[in-house]
Amino acid sequence: MAAGGDHGSPDSYRSPLASRYASPEMCFVFSDRYKFRTWRQLWLWLAEAEQTLGLPITDEQIQEMKSNLENIDFKMAAEEEKRLRHDVMAHVHTFGHCCPKAAGIIHLGATSCYVGDNTDLIILRNALDLLLPKLARVISRLADFAKERASLPTLGFTHFQPAQLTTVGKRCCLWIQDLCMDLQNLKRVRDDLRFRGVKGTTGTQASFLQLFEGDDHKVEQLDKMVTEKAGFKRAFIITGQTYTRKVDIEVLSVLASLGASVHKICTDIRLLANLKEMEEPFEKQQIGSSAMPYKRNPMRSERCCSLARHLMTLVMDPLQTASVQWFERTLDDSANRRICLAEAFLTADTILNTLQNISEGLVVYPKVIERRIRQELPFMATENIIMAMVKAGGSRQDCHEKIRVLSQQAASVVKQEGGDNDLIERIQVDAYFSPIHSQLDHLLDPSSFTGRASQQVQRFLEEEVYPLLKPYESVMKVKAELCL
């Protein structure tokens, strides 16, 4: 049975990233139509530049190519590739079939990587351009969430054990800070992308030097003109047959890092959902379990974690691919890159769409948070109580021993009897502590235990987050809708 299948058929496997999760716009960027249309555009740009620099290419040939950029006979191309065992030459023939007058000058002087690699770089750039505003929107939604809850005390956790208090907004800023680093890295790697350009079979530009009869300047002009037509500021000066596969490492490393950030955020949300302090959106008709109707599973956060793990592992592909590119190139890269580049971007696209949807509907339960604080705060307040007693004339050592005994009794009630923490009640009825009984409410005010959390939130948002989001103001209103 021949390899390949009808990918629109229910009898043929289709990647869930495309069929179930990723956005239509990201799927289109990695589609065959987008790819092969870009090949034709690159052939047109090459012909236009070659004509401008004096090669015998007519206006009629150029116009014929322009008129057929979208006229792609995919069936013919597939048949040609089956016959020739070469995808680029299959599309040269297919393009030439609908451009008979231009057929002889299509791909003039070029090698397969002229269309293959340059198209990949265009796709990487455009895919990054799709991700950047999506990530900015996630940051914006979380920034709104953090600002609104900047002063809401909550129990902090280290080692997932109760620690000092923080605020809900401050905790959210930990998430935002990681995503801001990801946004900066995505922008950097996007701006650092260079075009492969017009380089020939081993990167020496020998074929173009021959076409222009040894004119170095025209060869350099050709490279520059096509690079500018493709919208790049610069091209690699040095290439082998391909652009260095280190570029793929750079791009997928940034995406993998984004995956790590999203995994951490969504894990926190899942843990908070278990504590009943916070939940992701839950639709009115949504079913959490087929057997347990009360369940409210954090399905979206779980999906993000599941896909983020996949995204983090994909960076190993370009690392290994770059390491086995012998001399000017081997074909070890080809099949692998067809999979890992598309999957990385479709996965990143999915987790950003999902995280935006989550961040637009996060639900906080202040009463649950308050109750958990009441359970733990008495123990945390013991040092403040000791200091207040010393100020009232008591002995630190005597007070410490009193607190120690009462704390152990209260802990026994919590752990052995399943009761509430009654340390404060014990202190309130103990005559030894009568000098500070009137101060206990103040000493137990949760806001006095959150330090500068709310001020940190305000400063972080104003100095770091809002300036970073400013270039994306025009796209901030787009909502994230999930079908599944």
Rank of each mutant, 00 (worst) to 15 (best):
G96P: 03
L252A: 14
D430V: 05
T38Q: 06
L121K: 06
F195Y: 13
A392Y: 07
R171M: 00
D420K: 05
P366K: 08
L307W: 06
A335Y: 04
S448L: 15
L142I: 09
R171G: 00
D420M: 05
T267A: 10
I436A: 04
R338C: 01
D333Q: 03
T242Q: 07
Y294W: 04
K295T: 01
N357P: 01
C173Y: 01
Q63C: 11
W175V: 04
Q320Y: 13
F460E: 04
I269C: 05
V115W: 00
L346Y: 10
T202D: 08
R20L: 01
F145A: 07
I385P: 04
A143V: 06
L275S: 11
Y34R: 05
R452T: 12
K295P: 01
I436N: 05
Q356L: 13
N421P: 11
V315Q: 08
T239Y: 01
A260M: 06
L53R: 00
M278K: 01
I105W: 08
A335D: 00
Q286R: 01
D59Y: 13
P10R: 14
E250Y: 12
P435S: 10
L362N: 05
A90C: 10
A335W: 01
G5S: 13
Y365N: 15
E60G: 10
W45K: 04
E148Q: 13
L42K: 04
N274Q: 12
R452M: 15
G156N: 02
K75H: 10
Q456D: 03
T119N: 02
T94E: 12
L355Q: 07
G393L: 05
L69P: 08
R303L: 02
L258D: 01
T382F: 03
R329M: 01
Y472A: 15
C340Q: 01
K276W: 03
P10D: 09
D248M: 00
H107F: 03
Y432C: 08
P298D: 03
W43D: 01
R234G: 11
T201M: 00
F212K: 04
W326I: 09
T354H: 12
D268V: 02
T119S: 13
I62T: 08
G203C: 01
A77L: 13
Y294S: 01
V219I: 07
T201N: 04
E80L: 06
I265K: 07
I424S: 13
W45T: 06
Q221C: 13
A103V: 13
F379S: 04
I386H: 07
K66Y: 12
E417Y: 10
F345R: 02
R37E: 09
C483T: 15
S407G: 10
I237A: 07
E148H: 09
S474A: 14
L444S: 05
S19L: 06
I427S: 05
L46A: 05
N118E: 00
L44C: 12
K35C: 10
L252S: 12
V363I: 14
Y365L: 07
M476V: 15
Y34T: 05
L271Y: 04
M89P: 00
L108A: 14
T239G: 02
E279R: 01
T94N: 11
A47K: 04
P24C: 15
F195I: 14
D191W: 09
Y365A: 11
D11K: 12
S454M: 08
T201G: 07
M380F: 09
L352T: 11
K82V: 15
T166A: 06
G288N: 02
L355V: 11
L131A: 13
R40K: 06
S448E: 14
Q375A: 11
R337Q: 03
Y466C: 12
Q164L: 12
T313A: 13
A348R: 02
I249N: 06
D192G: 11
Q161C: 05
T227K: 10
K276P: 01
A392W: 15
E328H: 04
I139G: 07
P298Y: 01
R125S: 11
S261G: 11
S434Q: 11
A206I: 06
A136K: 09
D144W: 12
P100V: 10
L55P: 01
D441E: 13
V368Q: 05
A235W: 12
V262M: 08
E417P: 02
D349G: 09
T239A: 15
E417N: 09
C266V: 11
S438K: 14
K170I: 00
L132R: 13
P318S: 07
I369K: 04
A110H: 00
V324L: 10
D117G: 05
S290G: 03
R452K: 06
C266S: 09
D216W: 09
P153F: 05
Q439T: 11
D117I: 00
E473F: 11
E25V: 10
D215G: 07
S19H: 13
I339H: 12
A431N: 13
Q408G: 13
V198K: 02
P162L: 06
G109N: 04
L443P: 00
F36L: 12
Q184K: 12
D430R: 06
P467L: 12
E464W: 07
L423T: 03
H159E: 03
K170H: 13
A110Y: 00
V138I: 13
T450M: 05
E70Q: 10
L271R: 02
V390Y: 06
S31T: 10
M278N: 03
N71P: 11
L341G: 14
E228S: 07
